[in-house]
Design a protein around this nucleic acid. Sequence first.
DNA 1: GCAGGTTTTAAGCAATTTCTAAGAAAGTCT
DNA 2: AGACTTTCTTAGAAATTGCTTAAAACCTGC
Lengths: 214, 214
Amino acid sequence: MIKVKGADAGVGAMNRRKILQAAEKCFAQFGLKGTAVQLIADEAGLPKTNVLYYFKTKQELYVAVLEETLSLWNSHFDKATVNDDPAMVLAAYIAEKMEVSRTHPLASKIFAMEIINGAQNLSGYFDEEHALWMQGRLAVIDAWIAAGKLPPIEGEYLLYTIWASTQHYADFSAQITRLRGKKMTKADFENATKQVIKLVLGGCGLAVPEAFKE
Amino acid sequence: MIKVKGADAGVGAMNRRKILQAAEKCFAQFGLKGTAVQLIADEAGLPKTNVLYYFKTKQELYVAVLEETLSLWNSHFDKATVNDDPAMVLAAYIAEKMEVSRTHPLASKIFAMEIINGAQNLSGYFDEEHALWMQGRLAVIDAWIAAGKLPPIEGEYLLYTIWASTQHYADFSAQITRLRGKKMTKADFENATKQVIKLVLGGCGLAVPEAFKE
DNA sequence: GCAGGTTTTAAGCAATTTCTAAGAAAGTCT
DNA sequence: AGACTTTCTTAGAAATTGCTTAAAACCTGC
């Protein structure tokens, strides 16, 4: 049997995953420059040189982590069309993004830091993939408005608001936890999700679908 | 005449300010660990040892920068009471925060990174000052609701949404700029402010005051 | 069991970086 | 002018860190 590089079984693949997971944790807490390869190695329970065997440079490992996070952002919203109901689509999109914040807070933090620091490692993503996605989604929103399914609104700022208010629960969890005195539970997240949906849909002049009501 | 330390005139004070400004820029882009003192010195146009003369350690300089940013977050909302009009107060609060995002994006970024990284240097701030502030503001919101001036809503999540959607324009400016293809102008910010106000107040079931309408 | 590779490890180089030591220069007050 | 403080500079110690080298250990198919 021929050994396939990058397969998800075998020693190599398992170590790769262990390293990526450890790196995610470290990068989220200390940033790219602030994270020593040794730290990632300790976190992964491997010698430093072994980490560098799988990822030649720290930068390469960082980009690998970053790319993994980008894949998290696929959503049902990607495929929505004029024929869909904006209230349902937007509510579901918000719920999806809240769920990512709850289940993958580290990935969200790394992405946030990368952007705050100027997004040098995401130029390709922004200029191609993401910009096109945005164009398509804005077109759908405008089509909804033209069809009278959605009161007039600027889609651009609507999307920014959705991103901001959902990612906030991952990125700023330290602040939220400190203010509440305790971590947000899954139930808290469900409640927060309903509140965000209510705020955003209400702001758009849309009624909240039954499935997302409190 | 006795020389007063920390006065805002004289060589020392001027250099302190130059250093703080340079440090703000560097920390926002590279983070605490990612910023070398030498870099700050270059940015400030001073020798490295001179920077360390004014701030004994990099950490001390970082905390000084951080504390400066905290002072930016005073707001008229701090003093609002039940007797005020929630729509006016909240709209003004959003507008204020948007203005901070426009005029002090670097400070916002540093604060954001600090929280993403676990807010180790803000424990005092959160546990005392900020938690009390939050308690007071939530009480006002609840009082508005009790007085029938504001439809029932969870103040906590409302505040999170306001923070998130306003700070987003500072913290994620790199993403926004890339998606738009150009930087947001002052006029763009005014427009964005109106949109955020419309979304949030609409979500609360409040009418947008004339002064903040588009 | 051995020849091919893959994976693991120890040792360490070269560059960077924080911070100190110590004194020179400049300014300030009496 | 002379004493004193503040500011600036030079030189370098001590620690950290990314990455390399090179060899050992481990597979795996035959």
